[in-house]
Design a protein around this nucleic acid. Sequence first.
DNA 1: GAGTTTGAAACT
DNA 2: CAGTTTCAAACTC
Length: 1002
Amino acid sequence: MEPIKNKPSPVRPKTARVGFGVALGYWLDALNYESPFSNYISNLSPIKPVNTAHVAHGLLGINSPPLVFKSPHTASDRQIYLLRRFQYPQISGAETSKIDDGSKKAVDGLEDMGKSNTCLTSNLIVDAQKSDNVNNSEQDQPGSSSGCVDDYLSDPVDADCANSVNLVNSNVKKSYDALQASESNLTDLKIVESDDINDKGTKGEVSRARPEQDGEDPKEQPTSETKMEKIKEDGSIAKQPSHVCPNFGSDLLVDHASRQQCYTSGAQVSQLQRGMSRRCLQFEQAQQETIMDGTYPPTPAINLFGSISPASSTELEILDSSQVELTISPYKEQTMTAIFSADISGKSPLAVSKPSGIGLHLNSIVNTLPTGSSASKPTMSHHLVENKISCSKLLNLVERVSLTAGDRVLQTKASLATSPATSESFHNMEFFNNLQPPEQVTPHNKRRFSSEHAGNFEWSPSSPKKKRHVYYTTELLMISRKKASSTVGDDCKRCNCRKTKCLKLYCDCFAAGIYCAGTCACQGCFNRPDYDETVLETRQQIESRNPLAFAPKIVQHVTEFQAIDAEDLGLFTPYSRKHKTGCNCKKSMCVKKYCECYQANVGCSNACRCEGCRNIHGRKEEYAMTQEIVSKRANEENLEGMAGEKLRMVANNKFLHAELYDLRSLTPPTPSFEYLSHGKDTPKSRLLPGRYVLSSESDFSMLPSYAKSSSSPSNSHGNDMLPNTSKTLDIAILGQELDYNSTEITGQFSPQFDGLADFSDQTPLLNPSSIMMASSASSKTQDKANDSQPQVYPGSARLSPGSSLCWRSSPITPMTRLGETKNQAQDSDCGLCDILEDDTPEILKDSSVPITSVKSSSPNKKRVSPPQSHTREFQSSSSAGLKSGRKFILKSVPSFPPLTPLVLDRLHSRKVHMQLCSEVLVLRQVRTRTSYDSQLISHLSLESGEPSSYDTRPFFPPELLDDDLDLSLMNHFGEWESNEDCDFDGLRLLDSDRCLAARGDR
DNA sequence: GAGTTTGAAACT
DNA sequence: CAGTTTCAAACTC
Ligand SMILES: [Zn+2]
Ligand SMILES: [Zn+2]
Ligand SMILES: [Zn+2]
Ligand SMILES: [Zn+2]
Ligand SMILES: [Zn+2]
Ligand SMILES: [Zn+2]
């Protein structure tokens, strides 16, 4: 060990705690057209910083609103409800929360749902319970009225926004609780876990209550801070509690965890503004499970992640996909999270829906992005958090959240860290050395589903104790088909680090921005909530070196002109996702998971330096061709919609490139399809965890401001990304990669969400960020509860803030790809397909639209709902088929925090960009699929900066601005991932050959 | 489960 | 930035 060191004590106890909750966001896809919104729920974030000073810090200090990306999830309506309820309550909240009511409600809803629902419900219930407990101890969550739910439902978005993160968090918690409860019902174990999580999550107080986790030491769990302190004192860290396996634990769990942990810093901060983003990556699964898709296409899966919400005023985020997933089981109904689905997908039919199958790994990981920013500039920095949810197998999702705000706490530290020296110091091994990790335990935690019966779907994992259970259940349900879930257990696991203490990027958990959970088999792990400080510091150091280190690796890339035209935007749809930095495979021919491209289910691109590429998702050579085609089409198709104009505007401004992160991975509705298709899960690919989520570029852009000051690294990434032609957009995809099982996201993000907005109607969409947040929040809780869910680091959140902003922006949903459409039919998998089918272009347009709208309108929080009309128009114009339902909602992101001065300047210069940035547009598309009942919703959110918001956010560094504009778009495809391949292929190839081929391969 | 292979991350 | 080492996952058996 050599830890890094220098840094002072690694271990600090976390202070925090914060309780933030995490916000949960979800997207619901709507299965039904009808409820578009429902789908999405944002998450919650907790935030409330209640307690701690931290919060204050965070808030104050950082302003930047973090963006969080969240992955939208799709959830069934019911699920959504539940979630909302939960959230709302909190929101309304007060703090106290009576979760009970909410929980009950939730529960009820769940029951309604049906088996699948049951699972979810159970989970929810559980959560509620926990919450109760928590409440006692924690109160962060306000528990506001339970009743809230209804309200929430009604206006999710608004409320969310208004309320601010905190509310969200509370909601989340509730939901979380509920989930747990539900789990309990379903599975005994789960409950326990969840409890643990909650405990943990909730600030330390709670933790006690919680049972111990399997592996972990209960002792340690105690509140973070205290623990941390103790540890430090002891000198030995040894105690670190293990975390539980995060498994994917349900998202909810995750959220909780996140919240809790969130970190503290995050929480606190988060509330302020963090944004989180999440992603889910499906990678592999999709492929495998394609079959699944067929079966259930409709399902639910929808996921969506989407999200990102920028949060405008509040950012929030949302939830994790995971949660969503859980909830959902039923297909049609909206599933909460796509992510889960993914996991599940593999197995159960239900799963199918979700994406779980999708190849996603549900694990969502949260990453913070941050780029350097976070540390140094809290404000600016964004972190993305990724959550990995899938438990085992299921899917991996990665989520990242970018938090902006959160970091304040971090900042503080950051200051330390920030200083170059510090960072360096970090490097020092000393630091590491100093850290003495406790032993972790845990490995076994993995859950298995041993049995799961199906009864309802359910499976309970054999060992339910862990948090994940919940997750499992859901998954199980979903997955049931899949093999037994037994495998799942595996998923649960996340890392097996022996020498890095889980503080280097070698660790998937760390890389994904999530805390290790019980499922991890790591040794000497410091990547736990208890050591949050250490984690954050380390992150900062790493970011200082490479701002993009935690940025999503998978991004969508849009060519310039595509971008330019609004339509193009839509067009870009065809966005091709690609690995930001490309792979460097020499021997695997990109046909094995050794290849990150392959693992992420993306084809190789011009960025790849692979030799003998045979990537089934698209060979490197193909990539170029595809792009050309796409571009052509785009041009042809360009519509002039508002979006187009806006885009143009942007372009003019210099919007050369933007990277968008896909939310899909997280959970886009469409994606759900993918999930289905992929069905399998892929559990885990290695992760590409968080990184993937965001495209670095965007991140950069975002970050830069933060980081920028500190360093310019961001630029680089931008460069990398963009390089292509002059202008490209890359979108980070949230969902991608991480498969982690359910990881929990650390709370880091916590932050806030902005509103969750629903996509549907009024609400805008969730911001991914919000989602992320939620997820993160959940994650924390999870941790506490169990490990299952990944917790996001609070700090990370911080980091991201700046970047996060970017992320938030986009959710695009569906990107359509030309090819995809074709394939889609075939592939149920591809979420996109749906959209694509009809008209990809249109979709694109839509997406574009939102953007435009964004600009125009609302700067901050406000959502711009306007879109509808526009969107509608587009839709109509665009696609006949798909469009049916799409709605676009724009949301503006609030700028929570003040932006850094720099930012502002920049902003001014590029109002356009800024606007875009600041505002988040959300598009939802609701569609009916031909085959599927489900609706797809696509969100597109852009963050724009309004002035105010700008302030908060980081934006692009001037430099970047000039040349490039980064937009982060989140797609909520959630499930895409698995399908993605196909989709992408299709898009790229136009030919669809790939898709076919891919399928065949699979 | 042990051992090998692999390519990213870390380090020089 | 290139070259080397380290690392943990992916893969193989
Ligand atoms: Zn690890
Ligand atoms: Zn781990
Ligand atoms: Zn670990
Ligand atoms: Zn490769
Ligand atoms: Zn590649
Ligand atoms: Zn390749």
